[in-house]
Every structure is written in structure tokens, then in C-alpha cells.
Design a protein around this nucleic acid. Structure first.
Lengths: 253, 253
DNA sequence: TTTGCAAAGTGTTCTTTTTACACTAAGTTA
DNA sequence: TAACTTAGTGTAAAAAGAACACTTTGCAAA
């Protein structure tokens, strides 16, 4: 954090206001989330060593920018889909002993609550290979379904982010943010199943998504796969914008 | 505000964290929102004298409770539907001159930003006759559609709340919170039209809402109306809960 | 070289939901 | 008693959703 401060040496971090990012990635199998290992936590329990990446907010920084700064500092990614989940501010949200330690380390008034404004973001997993940073001793992708506990109230935040993502993807085709430029319908299909946590009929899924006319068939096939190769598609942004303007509001899965 | 503080004299208000409530009401014609007149604002412009009711948050108070405290102090209502809209914290959100004045009056560090966590709530208009309070020189209902400007970034917050309400009512039948115990289908119909800002076919609306089986026909008619009297209905909470559990997720307007 | 494997790709039928649409009924007021 | 106002009702056509099975293609293993 020190080096961050030096970049902005004339600015003050607000000791009672932070942002946390739920960064989702998709590995073609399941939904993952990027967590940092704080290196502290109870001995009996590794789970609460893990936390969402987050940081305090500068006094003159707007919330969206703070979130994208956190994301950028950790992953070096820019222009990432970001959406606010909400504010979390239970006075006792930092009640676990291991969390208190951390609180002291950032020199916040220990008696005052830290409010966090949570965001979720969708990134192409290929674009970021986790590595340590100024920010985190270590950062890694974890399967969302394997997570049952996190530091602070981060588990609760994760669940809230998942809920928002589920709701949102039914209305707006966000999936492309989680896939590489080129992807197959099978991959997109699996992504929707992973997010919605239910299986979707293959033929119905294909018919529906193709009917939206927001995919461009690249006339290019997979190579080297031990089965019938799939066509590659890419997201057609122009058609998507047309569609949004004429007011589609249901992706209806 | 002083008398609030005296009630909680051992507690500290956080000068940089507030909550604002978008309190919606329905007068059988249109959607209304409860605004307070701060009594200050530019002379040329009355609009930015008006603001959402809000207040600073106590250091040890959770966010939801702070919002319902604000609502309760203003209206004396309890157990009101409340939902978080999100956090608003542009450093320049208090940039208008008239707003700066207000800032000084609450003795916040003028250089620091005030983050606000916004909520929206749905109240039965009959249950609250606006009156002055410790809280506001005056409070009144205003038609949502007539509002084009508010103090601070409150107009933006209002728009965000409206958007959330629209999204939510498509998924969950919230309308009952805005109507008296007994209401007619015509009133409910108008309410949906007001919130969704579009007209809905009368027959289709009735069929759909009745099919949900969450309304109890009270076998009681309007009296004294200069037209065919309507049946009164009430919300059937038991059936609604059954419905929620078996997982309805679409009210589909 | 043949066989097996694994995922791709493809249509039809039935059911449910949505949409569009117009007249009669009941009470009040003039 | 005529005029006005909102309540209340059904049907048909179109669209969307759900359920369902076999062929194709490329690779790998026998």
C-alpha cells in the first residue's frame, strides 16, 4: 500500500471507507473468483485467510474509479466490466480476531466501522495470470463453489455479487466479458449453466442465443480437439447496441 | 439533529457517511416521493432546495438500521419495505454552492467527501401525513414525474431508485406496500402503470395477477362512487409465501 | 484400419404465455 | 331517464418455452 500512497502522495486515504472487488473469471468449466491470501488468519482455519481484493479509498476519489483502481493495481487490466453490488457496513463486520489484526495494520480507528462498497467485475481469465503484487502476498483463482468462508464479511459480499450477476445475465448478455474474443457455443453454454447454476437444454440455448443475432460466426474451427471441432464465434457489438436501443430487456434464461 | 444526538448521546455521528431515503408513495394516480425542503438554496431556483430525507450515520449503526431510523424519525412508521439502492460517493457530489452551506452546517470536514448509502422504501401514503419535524423544516409529497432537479446528487439517486423499483416489481409483487389494506384491481393496475411508465392491457393485467393467487377477494364493494363499484381485495401473505418458496421468479410485466 | 469416444450440430411437437381486442354491467349525477 | 364513468369479462392468433434423439466429425487407442 505504501507505494500506492507515494504515487498519490498529496492525497489522503479515508481510513473508514474501502472498496472490495468480486472478480469473476471462467475457465470453461466453472465460475472462479480471484482471492488474495492475506497471510494471516486462524491457524485452525485457512479459509479466513482468503479475502476479496480491496483497498481503502482516497478522499477525493469517486467510488467507481476506486474499484477500477483496485482491479487495475491487482491485475493490470483496464476497461473491465464493473458493477456496484452495494455498500456493506455492519459495525461488527470486522469482528473475527484475525480481521481485527488486519484492521490495526491499516491504522484505522479500531473503534470505528469500515464501510466497504463492493463491486463485481467480469474478466477474461486468460488476460490475467495471478501473481503477487504490492497489494497481496498472493492472489489466485478459486472455484466459486468451493468457497464456504472468507475473511470479514466477504463471503456475504460474494453471495450478493453472485445474486446480482445471475439477475443481470438474464437481462443483458454479459457472458462475453468472461470469454476470450473467439469462443464456441459450447463454451458460452457452459458459462450460462455455471452462472445460473442449472442445466440448460443445448438446442434451446443455441436457438435462443443465435436468434438475438449478436454473434458473428468466424468460419473457423477448433483444431486438435479429440472430437468434432466447433465453430468459433465472436461477440457482435454493433448488433448488440442496435438490440439494446430498440429495447430488448429479456434474455430470459 | 441536536435532539437526535441527545437520545444517543454516547454515540458518535460519522461526519462522512450518510444515508438518504427515497420514500415512494402512491396516491391512486401517480407515483410520489417524499422530499424535504431544506430552506436554503439558490434564490433563482427553488428546485434545489428540495432534497431526499437523509442523515448522518452513527459510528456503530448498521446501514439498514440507519435508513430505517431516518424513515422512522421522519414519518414515525415502522416495518417499512426498504431496499438498498447503492452507495453514492462522487467527491464532487456536494458541489453546488447551496449544498456547501449545508455541509458546513453539519460540521463535516469540508474537504472530505460525504458518502451516502441510498435506500428506497415503499409506504402507504395514507399512513403518513407530512409535517415538519426535528429533521426537516417541511416535508411533502411530490409527483415523481414533476421532479427535474434536487439538491446534491439526489436527482441521480432518485433515478437509480426508480430503476431498481421497476426491475424489482417485475420479479416480486411489491405493489401492496404502496396501497392500503383494501384496494381494488383498478388501483393496483394504475400503480403498475405508474411504476412501469407504460400502459398495461386491463384484461391481461387482471388475468395475470389473479392467476398468481395472492389476492383475497373481500366480497365487499366500493360505495358512493359515481360508477360501477369495484370489489375490494387484500394481499394474501400466506399464498404469497407459498409462491415464493416454490420459486416463482417472474411477475413478467 | 477399424472401433470407440466425445462433443458438435440439428428440427419438431406440444404446452404455455403473451398479445390484441370490444362490449355489457352497475352505480351516480344532472 | 339519459348520460357518464369505471368495473368486469373471453377468445383467438402468435410467440415463446420445454422436452426430446440421432447424425457428424475428428482424434485416440486397439
Amino acid at each position: 500500500m505504501d507505494n500506492i500512497k507515494s504515487i498519490n502522495s498529496n492525497l489522503e486515504l479515508n481510513p473508514n471507507l474501502s472498496t472490495d472487488c468480486v472478480i469473476f473469471g471462467f475457465d470453461f468449466e466453472k465460475l472462479n473468483v480471484l482471492l488474495i491470501d492475506r497471510g494471516i488468519g486462524s491457524e485452525s482455519n485457512n479459509a479466513n485467510r482468503l479475502a476479496l481484493p480491496g483497498n481503502l479509498i482516497y478522499d477525493n476519489e469517486n467510488l467507481d474509479m476506486a474499484a477500477s483502481r483496485v482491479l487495475n493495481e491487482l491485475t493490470e487490466l483496464k476497461d473491465i466490466y464493473l458493477e456496484q453490488v452495494g455498500a456493506f457496513g455492519d459495525p461488527d463486520r470486522i469482528s473475527k480476531e484475525s480481521d481485527q489484526e488486519w484492521l490495526k495494520s491499516i491504522r484505522a480507528k479500531p473503534e470505528a466501522r469500515v464501510i466497504t462498497v463492493a463491486y463485481y467485475s467480469l474478466v477474461k481469465m486468460d488476460d490475467y495470470a495471478p501473481h503477487a503484487s504490492s497489494f497481496a502476498k498472493s492472489a489466485d483463482w478459486y472455484a466459486v463453489n468451493d468457497i464456504h468462508e472468507l475473511a470479514f464479511d466477504h463471503f456475504e459480499i460474494l453471495q450478493a455479487a453472485l445474486k446480482k450477476l445471475k439477475e443481470k445475465i438474464r437481462i443483458q448478455p454479459l457472458g462475453f466479458n468472461l470469454l476470450p474474443e473467439k469462443f464456441t457455443l459450447g463454451q458460452l453454454h457452459k458459462l450460462y449453466e455455471a452462472i445460473l447454476e442449472k442445466s440448460l437444454d443445448k438446442r434451446n440455448f443455441r436457438r435462443k442465443i443465435l436468434k438475438l443475432d449478436i454473434l458473428t460466426n468466424l468460419d473457423e474451427k477448433q483444431v486438435g480437439v479429440p472430437h468434432k471441432p466447433s465453430q468459433f464465434f465472436m461477440f457482435n457489438e454493433v448488433n448488440y447496441k442496435k438490440l439494446s436501443e430498440t429495447g430488448f430487456d429479456n434474455f430470459g434464461f
